[in-house]
């Protein structure tokens, strides 16, 4: 199978508060999986369960097709992790902090620290003590640390939090290029819709601990495209007329009698005329705006923003 992460009914209680509720998610090989949810939705808790840092109350976790509770060590050797709050030893330099990882991971490659620090653009700061690092530098160092052992799966918990706009852009580009050049599967959490939109190809939406939807971005876009909505009495013959007489092929029959046309937005009156002329009853006609943001707000009960 090509599932890199697979959870089944993953559940976590803190005391008697349910924080993660029967989450069953699937991350496929090569995905950039955007884990989207508001603050407090349960993203960090889920991620920490995927890494064995938090013990699930219930449910199963498979990573690389193996049971996490049984093969934790083997699995983690192939995973890179950038925590939400990246921790380093403040009395050590950036390079020394990374050396801890290369030693423990048994990374043999000679110039690996130079390589990863160059990738994230802080090689010049390698000899600075961590207590002198800015938040942005720490975030980069944390990403550098997570790719030291050339992982197949990279898990990033809100990596652009607390970065300035330029830093956000750079980190985004970095993640994208890592995924493309190194063929790493990426699992990235965020509370910002536009960020996930720009990065991910699959989105999982978590809200109050529950996974509301898991969908590829293409499908999502298709679902949310701007379209002409036509309600007719006979969708079969109406479709034929659209194709034959108007040359419209980019449409779908959404429900019985309800057709969505994704092109020809400026030809709305022509569509109407041709259909009526051909003896079709047009019951309703209009233009619908597809909007991801509206979609998410609707999905999560409409009482807040992402």
């Amino acid at each position: 199978m090509c599932a890199i992460i697979k959870t089944k009914n993953l559940t976590k209680y803190f005391g008697n508060i349910k924080v993660v509720d029967k989450v069953s998610l699937t991350v496929k090989r090569g995905d950039i999986y955007g884990f989207l949810g508001r603050n407090g939705a349960g993203k960090t808790t889920t991620i920490k369960m995927l890494l064995g840092l938090i013990n699930p109350t219930k449910g199963e976790i498979e990573v690389f097709g193996e049971d996490l509770s049984k093969s934790k060590r083997k699995i983690l050797e192939r995973v890179g992790y950038t925590p939400e709050f990246s921790g380093f030893y403040s009395n050590l330099t950036g390079a020394e902090n990374l050396k801890i990882n290369t030693r423990l991971l048994g990374v043999q490659k000679k110039d690996i620290i130079e390589e990863v620090l160059n990738i994230v653009g802080i090689w010049d700061e390698r000899n600075k003590l961590l207590k002198k690092y800015s938040l942005g530098m720490k975030q980069r160092l944390s990403i550098a640390r997570s790719i030291l052992h050339n992982p197949e799966l990279l898990i990033l918990d809100e990596p652009t939090n607390a970065l300035d706009p330029i830093g956000i852009k750079e980190v985004r580009r970095l993640i994208k290029s890592l995924a493309e050049k190194r063929k790493i599967t990426v699992f990235i959490s965020s509370h910002i819709l536009t960020e996930v939109q720009q990065l991910a190809n699959t989105i999982g939406i978590i809200h109050r601990g529950r996974l509301l939807e898991e969908i590829s971005l293409d499908e999502l876009r298709r679902k949310n495209r701007r379209y002409i909505e036509v309600q007719v009495n006979n969708d079969g013959s109406a479709s034929m007329i659209l194709e034959k007489k108007l040359g419209i092929y980019d449409y779908e029959v959404h429900e019985e009698g309800n057709i969505r046309i994704y092109s020809h937005h400026d030809k709305i009156s022509e569509v109407n005329k041709v259909l009526i002329k051909s003896g079709i009853d047009v019951i309703k006609l209009g233009i619908s705006e597809g909007n991801l943001e509206d979609y998410f707000i609707k999905l999560t009960g409409g009482d807040g923003d992402f």
């Binding site: 920490k48 890494l51 064995g52 840092l53 934790k72 060590r73 983690l76 050797e77 995973v79 992790y81 925590p83 709050f85 990246s86 921790g87 380093f88 030893y89 403040s90 990882n101 423990l104 991971l105 640390r145």
Partner: peptide, 13 residues
Amino acid sequence: EHTLENMLTIPVT
């Protein structure tokens, strides 16, 4: 210093 997340996922038991 929030360093356990790293130590325990490298992984060290």
